[in-house]
Design a binder for these strands. Structure first.
Lengths: 284, 284
DNA sequence: AAGTGGTCTAGACCACTTT
DNA sequence: AAGTGGTCTAGACCACTTC
């Protein structure tokens, strides 16, 4: 299926060409002529809201990314090629890809092409980790896995992962260290169905960030995440793991990560020791 | 001065018009033909790096914003008008404004125009405040000012504000409450030169966020900020202000805010009580 | 009806990378 | 030389807002 199908025929694709051959049916985007409901809160109609062409193209490309037609790290077809495939102008494809690049789903490289983003990259390692050393260059910590087991989802975990209480999950607990200094205690819950063969051994053997493993071995790519940060006191257990005293203040970060379609696929609860590190955030 | 002057004459502005009257000198962007230094680290040449036209336009518009030619809340000239002024196509102006909108310097409103962003807005109130209630809608807290005085900058403050140790600053301390519950203790340092007439009275009288006051009354507009977050224990003094026990864990957020030209103009140190609130962050 | 930003197209040329 | 993304232009039409 080549041409754009989502909303009626291709809107305005042949109507404005100065020397277009066939005057053709200018059916065009029917838009909200006629009924259409106002955008008032709690409105009645489901609000069809016809999206612009480039948004439709963006959705089609996203589908291809999700379906694995182009894999992480691979090059996607050139703009010209995509324009031909979807029967739109290169400029429209360009605008679609611009947004995908802004969303970090693809990366453009002049002269080379557009590539599917991957978590296997120097810059990607730190993409979701906001903890930075107070002094020196940011770098990725070493992991030591304490527990990896299958678990039935507790109610709160299930709710955040959009599952049912008691559904199968994979539970992971680890400590991360910077230059040998334990700094992060982290617990993770993953949907059991998506991460069947995940074992402590595979995690330990794997070099690089966990999201790279998830992407390559389990076909689940994290796109974005929501994080809620608090200050808490270290429990006796956590304090021991971090080699600090009981009652040391720690940053608590609860992260829910999402894959394509805004589907939550990871819950992460981290405790950060912030005596020589800080949680970095840029506001704009 | 109308036409684009920064880098040589207008690059490529008349060369590609299909039916251009005068074949004209296609002098065009001289670019890095000839010498030009490689972008290697620590290179010799000052790296002229010719920027694309739309970036030059963006810079020109930014200058007009900074100089106050168009004030916060006001509408800037239409794209067509700017295109005429700078002697470029509307598409180039559009791309420049697209980036300014992405940077939150202006806001586009279809059918109405493009407006200079302002901190006097419902959405702007929460723009830099990441603390959200665990339950219920986010809203802006009430302020109670404890101290407002002029102070010589301590060394650490001076360094962060790009001043000299001992330079004049305005120091502010306040407590902010959500629905009457004290939740934030905050200290601020501002460059004394920029905030001459700032008094406790003016701060107390002013309704709305402080950044609005800074923008309207002192002509200093915060563009972006860097924030470093840590977990700490409440001192006896802070605990009293927040009506909590000594040693309660608190979020410590150190924020440096910047105005045009990446000039630091505010240091803010906040302590957040996170028992019924959390610091919200979206990662992507 | 007029003015604004938003979308879409078509074509030219530039800069960068690889062959 | 060929292919890729990046810039720039010109013109058409659409959607929204205001007069």
């Amino acid at each position: 299926m080549n041409p754009v199908t989502p909303n009626q025929s291709s809107p305005g694709s042949s109507a404005n060409a100065p020397a277009a051959p066939s005057a053709g049916a200018t059916a065009n985007n029917p838009s909200h002529s006629g009924s259409a409901a106002p955008a008032s809160a709690g409105g009645a109609a489901p609000a069809p809201t016809f999206s612009p062409l480039y948004q439709q193209i963006k959705a089609l490309i996203t589908q291809s990314l999700q379906s694995g037609e182009w894999k992480p790290g691979e090059m996607i077809p050139s703009e010209v090629e995509l324009a031909n495939r979807y029967k739109v102008s290169q400029g429209t494809v360009r605008k679609a890809i611009d947004e995908l690049a802004a969303d970090n789903l693809v990366m453009r490289r002049q002269g080379k092409g557009t590539f599917v983003s991957t978590h296997h990259e120097a810059r990607a390692h730190i993409r979701f980790l906001r903890l930075r050393p107070d002094e020196g260059q940011p770098h990725y910590p070493e992991s030591r896995f304490l527990e990896v087991k299958r678990l039935r989802a507790p109610a709160d975990v299930a709710r955040l992962l959009d599952m049912k209480s008691g559904d199968a999950t994979v539970y992971i607990k680890r400590v991360q260290s910077f230059d040998g200094v334990p700094t992060i205690v982290e617990e993770l819950w993953l949907p059991g169905l998506l991460f069947k063969g995940l074992t402590a051994e595979r995690l330990s053997e794997y070099k690089g960030p966990m999201y790279g493993l998830f992407e390559s071995e389990f076909g689940t790519r994290m796109i974005r995440a929501d994080e809620k940060v608090r200050a808490v006191l270290a429990s006796a257990e956590d304090a021991a793991l971090l080699h600090v005293e009981d009652g040391t203040p720690l940053l608590s970060a609860e992260r829910v990560s999402f894959t394509y379609g805004d589907k939550p696929v990871e819950l992460r609860r981290g405790l950060y020791l912030t005596s020589r590190h800080h949680y970095q955030n840029d506001l704009n």
